[in-house]
Nucleic acid binder design. Sequence first.
DNA 1: GGTCTGCAGCTTTTT
DNA 2: GCTGCAGACC
Length: 784
Amino acid sequence: MINLTDLNPMQRLAVENTEGPLLVLAGAGSGKTRVLTYRVARLMENGVPAWKILAITFTNKAAREMKDRVLQLAGPEAEECWISTFHACCSRILRRDIEKLGYKRSFTIYDEDDRMTVLKQCLKALQMDEKQFPPKALRAVISDAKNKLLTPEEWFQQSDRSFRDRKTLEAFQRYETVLKENNALDFDDLLVKTLQLLADNPPVLEYYRDKFSYILVDEYQDTNAAQYELVKLLASQSRNLCVVGDDDQSIYGWRGADIRNILYFEKDFPDARVVKLEQNYRSTGNILDAANQVIAHNAGRKEKALWTEAEEGERVALYRALDERDEATFIAQMAEKLIRGGERPGEIAVLYRTNAQSRVLEEAFVRLGTPYRVYGGLKFYDRKEVKDLIAYMRVLANPDDDVSCRRVINEPRRSIGESTVDALAAYAAENGISLLAAAMAPEDAGLSSRARAAVSGFGELMLSLTEQLYESAPDRFLEEIIQQTGYVKALEEARDDESMNRIENIHELQGAVAEFMRLNPEGTVQDFLENVALVTDIDGMEESRGAVTLMTLHSAKGLEFDCVFLAGMEDGIFPLSRAMDEPEQLEEERRLCYVGITRARKRLFLSCAAQRLLYNSRSCNPPSQFISEIPPRLIQGAVARGAGPMRIAPAPGQGMRTSWRGAPEPTRAYNPREARSYGRDEGPYNPRAARVTEDSRPRDAAAPKKPDLSSIPGLRKGFGGPPDREVASVNLFRVGDRVSHRIFGEGTVVELSGEGAGQKVRVRFEGKGEKLFAANAAPLTKIR
DNA sequence: GGTCTGCAGCTTTTT
DNA sequence: GCTGCAGACC
């Protein structure tokens, strides 16, 4: 029996009104997730079978969290609920019935990179110039059209129908054809094809309508036309549809999300009940006040006033930095101070508008030795070596996938050059077979004898791996691929730092597969690939309690932290300059700011820089207009807007002063010469390696005066490995030391070579042979 | 025909 | 600071 007394009257209303359409307007921090989970539990308590419940969330992380909480409330039966993202839900529906649309069930899901590859291929075939028709722009047009449920032809009809549009149409059509030939769907197709499947196949629609008699949709303000139609289609029979959202947190307009979906819900369902959750349980009074004041500048909102019983708390701190480095130093030092004051690193977040801003921040954290973790940017699955191995798995699972086939046909190098591949592809096209099929039987493809031999070798390899596919679990299969293709062997032979790094990433991939198998013991290769396509790095978040979080504002949606820094609060950065002249876009930026502010429970820090180096040029930006939308009474050391590049000292006797007097090292006065030479004497710092850094120091280590980045220990996070693991400084290794490695287990250091950043450690592992590591990157723990 | 090296251009947010 | 491309080299 679930306990409804845990809920306030409004939350309770939202939970108990299980029948008919319901709109829950849930302000930030108002207990939205609680309502959703209790509602599912309540339904089950009322006798609704779990398998009749569909709950849709925006991220996989949110889905998993919700599932966990529902399981706690309602017991193991809840396992049968469908709780997933739109994309995962669609993928599941399509895996069952996509053959009705003329695809095979083994279809591949193409990511943005694959889309670009296909588009470039299309442009080439149509002899269109990439300069004239930038693939990125085409991708945007196509994605936009699909999100609006337009076919290429319909898109053209509503365009200007210029010559340009006509050419774009051709590329669009060809893109669709190529995807189909490759038995592949892009992200947007997952929604579009599901809709098509349901619309064209009444029995299938009936099945799902009947199955999902209760539907819940989270973050409804971020649904696009396709998602909206899908929900309507599925829910129109039972009408038991509960949507939860906050129009003030709609931040995905650029991705086709239509805020009107939530604003007009009551028009779509005139009998809908509306429940507003306005009590905020998350933030202090001052933080909430600041958020309310900022968002009040937007027009056309749903009437809503968030309030809290919490105390006022501290005021919002504002730091006006000289430049981006000064800002980053301030943030890192303040974070360090908070940690010393007892705050857990995982309760601190630094949020910024664009991924490009993360680098300077990272450098500052590295310099202070403060543990941090960057989310987004270059994703794990975007790394070349990881993509290559995934591409092997993909083409073996879906032999029609020419894009993946092309990717791996000469990786590692097997002397199959571009012209050979082109000839082979032409031969495949003539005979209506896939590239892989052609490679397996290249005798009549008209290749030179040398080329034919190389291709045959590849074909035989793939044939042998195909046989493995049906016999092996994902981990074993990946192992076979690595062995038979000689991928790692080729890297080992290269012997440079980069290759060692790549080998490490491959081990992380193996770790990821192992973790997947732990969670899905029955999972197939196909299931794993699906997981890879639909799961992002952000989803693995909870594993990093021991590190400060660095991420974009968009990624932070749905998360909360005790202390939040909003960095780069400058006009031109946030709001972005391209959004400043467009009222609608400016409002979306403002909502993003609202999302950022409301992530904070206890403390909020805003910072801006008088000048900054971004996109290769130095620019001077005034403080963000959003800062001036917060009343000065809520700000510590408040400053007038446009007060010039001087740093504003904190007002006397106010918290700001005390809070940063104790920082490890006072921020230095600005010195242009010094600013120019910054970063020069720091050695071969590799931010790419640092991206996967976590918990990068022993907790009690003092911040080094003169930073030597090559000695920063433990430059890797074990993918899916245990959290908060501390790694000893590798530069202290000596021959004979006993060390431990996450994948290889325990071993002994047998050789040290190279100097500084190029230093290598050779370790002999029991039963696993010898491995060579880059000393500054190896995840080796010294054991006594 | 294949591979390697050096240089230019580009960077909003993501399921 | 990474990717893509052109040109040189094998």
